[in-house]
Design a binder for these strands. Structure first.
Length: 372
DNA sequence: CTGCCACTATATGGGGTTAA
DNA sequence: TTAACCCCATATAGTGGCAG
C-alpha cells in the first residue's frame, strides 16, 4: 500500500475528483513536440528495417507488379483495392473512437500526453496498462465464480458447474455448449449467450441480440456490484442497483452513492465498448480454457470484440442507428434504473471530433511521408 | 528437433481499505 | 460491521532464444 501511495507524484495535480473532459474537437490530440518525438522514434525503427532489406527500392515497379500478382489469387477477386484500403481506413476509426473513449473515461490523460516528456509518458502508459490488466484479471476471476452460479441456477444443469474448475465447461457441457454456440449453428435449436432467452430468431438476426440475462448479470456484477447482479429479472428495470443505494438516492444525489465501479470510473451510461468487454469476459468464463488467449480454437476473441464494437459504433444506416440507440438505452435502463440521468456526461464522441482527429492523423502521416 | 533457460502475461487467493 | 473494491505475492502457462 505504502508503495503505491508513495508512487504518486506530489506534483501530480491531475487527480481531480470531478475531472473535466477536454474538448477535443478543435485541439491537437497531443503536444506536437511529444508527438514528434514519438514519430521520430518510430521512423528510426522503420529506417533500420528498411536498411536490412535494401534492394527492394531500386526495382520498385517490378517489385510492386510481381507482388500484385498475388492479390487476385489470394485476396479479392472483384473488389477494387481502393475499396479494400478504404475499408481498412474505416476500421482504423475504431482505434480513434477508442482514443476518444479513453479521453472520456480518463479525461486527464489527454493533457498529460501533451505535457509530459517521452520517458514520463512511457512510464505513465506502463502503469496504466498494469492497472488495466489487473482489473481485467479481477473481473475474470469474479466472473469465473459467478457465471457458474448463474448457469447452475437458471438451467438446473445435471453436471453442476464447479466454480473452481473449468474442466467441465465449454462444448463438453451441454448448457455451456448451447450458450457458446454461434447463432447460425444449431445446438438443439437455440444458441448463444448473447441472445435474450438464449434463443436465436432465425428470421431476424438482431432480435434479442445482446439482451440476454447472463450478459446483464455479468455487466452488473462488474460495473455495479456482484450482489446487484442477483436482481436481474425479465424485462424489469434495474431500479435496485444496491439496497444501500436507495436511501442515498432519496436524499438527492449530492453525495456519491455507494462506490461501485461505474461511479468510480465515472460511467453514467452503458457504452458499446463496455458491452463488448462483458461479452468477451462471459464468453471466456463459459469456455474451458484456463488462460486468456486471443484465439481459442476456431474462436478469435479480438475479432469478436471488434465485431461487437462495430455493431454498435459503425452502424450502416439511420434505421439501424435507431435500433442500436434503443438497445443502448435498454442497457442503461437495465443497469442503472429508469430514473437514471445520463445527460451529465458531455458527449465527447461527436462526429466533429472524430473527423478532426482523422484529419490530424492524415496530416501527420503526410508529413512523415514527405520527410523521407 | 529437443531440452534448457529467461522472460512475460495471466490466474488466483488473501488481506488491506473504504464507504455506508 | 459488512460488502466490495483494490492491491500484492505467488504459481503457472505461454514464448522465444540458444546450444547441442
Amino acid at each position: 500500500m505504502s508503495q503505491s501511495t508513495s508512487e504518486h507524484d506530489p506534483l501530480d495535480q491531475t487527480h481531480p475528483a470531478t475531472p473535466v473532459v477536454p474538448d477535443l474537437s478543435g485541439t491537437i490530440p497531443t503536444s506536437t513536440e511529444a508527438r514528434a518525438k514519438r514519430r521520430i522514434a518510430a521512423l528510426e525503427e522503420e529506417l533500420q528495417e528498411l536498411k536490412q532489406e535494401k534492394g527492394t527500392k531500386q526495382r520498385k515497379m517490378t517489385y510492386y507488379i510481381s507482388q500484385g500478382r498475388a492479390i487476385r489469387r489470394t485476396t479479392v477477386l472483384y473488389t477494387s483495392l481502393e475499396d479494400l484500403i478504404g475499408e481498412n481506413d474505416r476500421r482504423q476509426d475504431r482505434l480513434q473512437r477508442g482514443y476518444l473513449a479513453l479521453a472520456q473515461t480518463l479525461p486527464w490523460v489527454h493533457s498529460k500526453l501533451t505535457n509530459l516528456d517521452v520517458e514520463d509518458c512511457e512510464d505513465m502508459l506502463r502503469k496504466l496498462k498494469k492497472g488495466a490488466d489487473a482489473a481485467q484479471g479481477d473481473d475474470t476471476s469474479t466472473l469465473k465464480d459467478l457465471v457458474t452460479a448463474w448457469v447452475n441456477e437458471d438451467f438446473r444443469v445435471s453436471p453442476l458447474l464447479r466454480p473452481d474448475s473449468k474442466q467441465l465447461r465449454s462444448f463438453v457441457h451441454d448448457v455451456c455448449g448451447r450458450l457458446l454456440c454461434p447463432a447460425e449453428w444449431d445446438w438443439s435449436n437455440d444458441c448463444t449467450e448473447a441472445w435474450a432467452n438464449y434463443a436465436f430468431n432465425g428470421g431476424d438476426v438482431e432480435k434479442g441480440l445482446f439482451r440476454s440475462k447472463i450478459l446483464v448479470q455479468a455487466f452488473k456484477a462488474i460495473f455495479t456490484s456482484p450482489s446487484s447482479a442477483r436482481e436481474v429479472e425479465g424485462d424489469g428495470d434495474g431500479a435496485n442497483i444496491l439496497k444501500n443505494n436507495r436511501r442515498a438516492r432519496q436524499t438527492l444525489n449530492h453525495v456519491k452513492v455507494k462506490t461501485c465501479i461505474a461511479s468510480i470510473i465515472n460511467m453514467r451510461k452503458v457504452t458499446p465498448r463496455s458491452i463488448a468487454y462483458v461479452v468477451c469476459q462471459v464468453r471466456f468464463a463459459l469456455s474451458s480454457v484456463s488462460s486468456w488467449r486471443t484465439v481459442d480454437g476456431d474462436f478469435n476473441y479480438e475479432a469478436f470484440w471488434n465485431n461487437t464494437v462495430d455493431f454498435f459504433e459503425d452502424v450502416p444506416g439511420p434505421v439501424a442507428q435507431r435500433r442500436v440507440a434503443k438497445l443502448l438505452e435498454w442497457w442503461t435502463r437495465k443497469v442503472f434504473g429508469k430514473n437514471h440521468r445520463d445527460d451529465l456526461t458531455p458527449d465527447v464522441v461527436s462526429k466533429m471530433s472524430v473527423t478532426a482527429l482523422a484529419e490530424q492523423r492524415k496530416a501527420l502521416e503526410d508529413a512523415a511521408f514527405d520527410s523521407e
